[in-house]
Design a binder for these strands. Structure first.
Length: 765
DNA sequence: CAGTGAGCGAGCTTCCGCTTGACTT
């Protein structure tokens, strides 16, 4: 018999706590929720006041049987799940599953994992808070109703296996709407004038001031006229202002800000950040990584202070506690910080090291002094124009927290190079070295990255730290959005330059629309979004979550009955479901583009069974229409008649080779050549499927055949030893087998291979 | 793994939030 059993949510947490509590306590973990709504069917008896049908998921059976065993061996049970809505529900489910009396079950909570906090918690147990539990049940059931009633409507009206939900559908909406803003954006250009001025000092030295004109010019003519004025102008400094200012450090990391900074500074995807953070957490190197709180424990504050003072001096220390700003934050945990702040770095895998150091810097910087800066603005007037030039410069007087860390922004404009403004006075005369007018184009708002989407969702109070990464995966898995790079296009910019009394014109090429790791909506995502907007505008409304959260709060405070809230929601919602099922047609995103200029047949595009498709002609008078798949990156919404007709130029025959047809086309994986039922990819950036010749095709085939032969180390007929990406391996009947370490692939016999295959098959079973 | 585009239709797909492994490549 054990005296005390403490149940927490996370096994890593259990391990740490057990050390604090001594031998009278055993600490185990529930691995999160242990019960959920039934997987099959709805799992809710709507007619019976939304009675939930809870079951223990298969993958939780072992955890639950362990929990039962330990519970039966313990005198006192303490439930220490997190102090938030989900944690309270976990406590309640635990009590139910372990058959504990709610009146006497000891519920404890702590916000930081320190001996003090835990022993304190043990001294102050309370009961399970049923109002909080009920607010969780309302949340859970509402999400199930939304997801499991709308998704089947999509299967019927759009395509099978699609999904909709309170969180994912808003995420898709954000991306679709941003894309449409970009599509309809009208680029404008203007000329920005910058100048490099010279101050001639008495001692014969001269210094330089870079400044920008207060006005932008509509076109090259206006810019030219202004440069002509500049040539004859006298320049005088009319005002010099020096303003002191401060900059403050950012708060310590939450899940969302960690994902954003790890993307910006380290290039990690949201899922990658979480995987690396999980490793650090399990190794005891950082605190819990799924949190919405910016709080640091007293111990962490004190330790940071120590580290800062000994590393940088007293002047650099400023202890702060940040208030959590994000909507709907539940603050069950601390901010993400190093467990031992003394360690500014760790040993281990590269990615773990990098992320750890980022977390260390952010944590320590948050406890450091403001940086003190001095911002200088100089105004320069011309004697022949009302346009003024201004120069600004910033000098850091005291670096403070910047010594350790500075936050990145999504738009890093590094072209604004910093330089130090020389000391100047009012009335000083300036002379130009160069005045340059360069064309600038306006740009639409940028597409979302995974991390900037998480930021936006957090701002809207949609989703939780534990679901940001899975949500991003879901919308990609459903095919609603795709994360990819785009090469961008070249654009000419015009430049007029005034130097030594002469104005010259030139042009420069720059890249525009280049994208790296951005989220692009796909056709099916746009169709689903439009369908949801049309029929379920309440659910995809950006405020929907905030509104239901308010009601969940009311339930948690005991001011609203949870079943009443659900009745209020479900009545109108279910009516909309039935109405939509009855009245709406299948959505295909069809667009009639016009008539074929040669045959007069109708040309249209729509979502077909196998994806977006263009169609020439129609079914009606016994004619067979012709079809062609839309190639990647073409949107049903924006494709033109010409582009659609162009799709029918493929597949195209190149003629015969060795008696077999040689055909070129574009498939799922890009342009290909098909010959003898074998496929050969065209080379990216080199070959164009519309113009590639028979001769070139033969070269490509020859090259690939030679490469395949190089790949083969041994050929035993049905068994092959091949050279793969990860080194040599054996393949038989489409199954691959790894070689045991230290095997020399060149010396393998057929019998060796069979041995390896049989051994591997045994261990797989 | 790349081609398809009409139909017949069984049985399946799906949510959000809490937690980690168990797998293959």
């Amino acid at each position: 018999m054990i005296e005390n059993l403490v149940i927490v949510e996370s096994p890593a947490k259990a391990k740490t706590i057990e050390k604090f509590l001594g031998k009278d306590f055993r600490v185990i973990s529930s691995f999160g929720h242990i019960r959920d709504l039934a997987k099959k069917n709805l799992g809710i008896d709507i007619k019976n006041d939304f009675a939930p049908d809870y079951e223990i998921p298969k993958e939780k059976a072992k955890v639950v049987s362990d929990l039962r065993k330990y519970a039966s061996e313990s005198k006192n049970i303490w439930i220490a799940s997190d102090e938030d809505r989900e944690g309270e529900a976990i406590a309640w489910h635990l009590a139910g599953v372990l058959k504990l009396d709610l009146e006497t079950t000891k519920r404890i909570v702590f916000h930081e994992i320190t001996k003090e906090a835990i022993t304190d918690a043990i001294k102050n147990p309370r009961q399970v808070d049923m109002n909080l539990v009920n607010s969780q049940q309302a949340r859970r059931i509402l999400d199930r109703l939304v997801g499991f009633e709308i998704s089947p409507v999509l299967w019927k009206k759009v395509q099978p296996a699609l999904s909709a939900g309170r969180v994912q559908s808003v995420a898709v909406r954000l991306i679709v709407e941003r894309e449409r803003e970009i599509i309809s954006f009208k680029t404008e250009s203007s000329f920005r004038v910058t100048a490099v001025f010279r101050i001639d000092e008495k001692d014969g030295n001269s210094s330089i001031i870079k400044a920008e004109a207060s006005k932008r010019f509509r076109d090259a003519d206006e810019a030219q006229k202004f440069l002509e004025l500049c040539n004859g102008a006298k320049y005088e400094i009319k005002a010099v202002t020096v303003k002191p200012g401060t900059r403050s450090p950012a708060p310590p990391f939450t899940t969302s800000t960690l994902q954003q900074e790890a993307y910006r500074k380290l290039g990690f995807s949201v899922a990658q950040t979480m995987a690396v953070a999980q490793k650090l957490y399990e190794a005891g190197k950082i605190t819990y990584m799924r949190t919405d709180s910016t709080n640091l424990s007293k111990m962490a504050l004190a330790k940071s202070r120590e580290v800062i003072i000994s590393g940088f001096g007293e002047k650099y220390s400023k202890t702060r506690q940040f208030k959590t700003k994000s909507k709907g934050a539940q603050e069950a945990h601390e901010a993400i910080r190093p467990t031992y702040i003394d360690n500014s770095t760790i040993t281990g895998a590269q990615n773990e090291k990098k992320l750890y150091e980022l977390i260390w810097k952010r944590t320590v910087a948050s406890q450091m002094s403001e940086a003190e800066v001095e911002k200088t603005t100089i105004s320069i007037e011309m004697n022949n124009s009302p346009v003024t030039f201004s120069a600004t410069g910033e000098v850091i007087k005291f670096d403070g927290f910047l010594r350790v860390y500075s936050e990145s922004t999504d738009q890093d404009n590094s072209d604004e190079e910093k330089y130090i403004i020389p000391p100047v006075k009012n009335g000083m005369l300036l002379y130009y070295n160069y005045v340059t007018a360069s064309q600038k184009f306006t740009a639409p708002l940028p597409r979302y990255t995974e991390a900037s989407l998480v930021k936006k969702l957090e701002e809207l109070g949609i989703g939780r730290p534990s679901t940001y990464a899975p949500t991003i995966s879901t919308i990609q898995n459903r095919g609603y959005v795709l994360r990819e790079d785009r090469p961008g296009e070249k654009r000419q910019i015009r430049i007029l330059a005034l130097e030594k009394g002469r104005i010259s014109a030139s042009s420069k090429t720059e890249m525009t629309g280049k994208e790296k790791s951005k989220l692009f909506p796909q056709n099916i995502g746009m169709i689903v979004n439009d369908f949801l907007m049309e029929n379920f505008s309440d659910i995809v409304d950006y405020h929907f979550t905030a509104e239901v959260e308010e009601q969940f709060d009311q339930i948690a405070m005991g001011k609203l009955k949870w079943t009443k809230m659900l009745h209020g929601f479900y009545g109108p919602f279910h009516k909309t479901i039935e109405n939509t099922l009855e009245k709406k047609n299948r959505q295909t995103g069809v667009r009639i583009l016009g008539d074929h200029p040669e045959t007069g047949e109708q040309v249209s595009v729509r979502m077909g069974r196998f994806g977006p498709v263009a169609q020439i002609g129609s079914q009606d008078n016994g004619n067979k229409p012709r079809f062609a798949s839309l190639t990647k990156n073409l949107l049903l919404e924006t494709i033109t008649l010409e582009e659609a007709i162009g799709l029918f130029r493929l597949p195209r025959s190149l003629g015969k080779h060795e008696g077999e047809d040689m055909v070129v086309g574009i498939g799922k994986f890009g342009p290909y050549i098909r010959h003898n039922n074998k496929f050969y990819s065209l080379h990216k950036g080199v070959d164009d499927p519309y113009t590639v010749t028979l001769e070139r095709a033969l070269e490509i085939i020859k090259e690939k055949t030679e490469n395949e032969q190089k790949k083969t180390i041994k050929d035993f007929g049905d068994i092959l030893v091949l050279n793969g990406r990860y080194g040599p391996y054996i393949t038989r009947e489409k199954q691959n087998y790894r070689l045991p370490k230290g095997t020399d692939a060149e010396k393998l016999t057929k019998d060796d291979c069979i041995n390896i295959i049989e051994k591997s098959n045994k261990s797989r079973k």
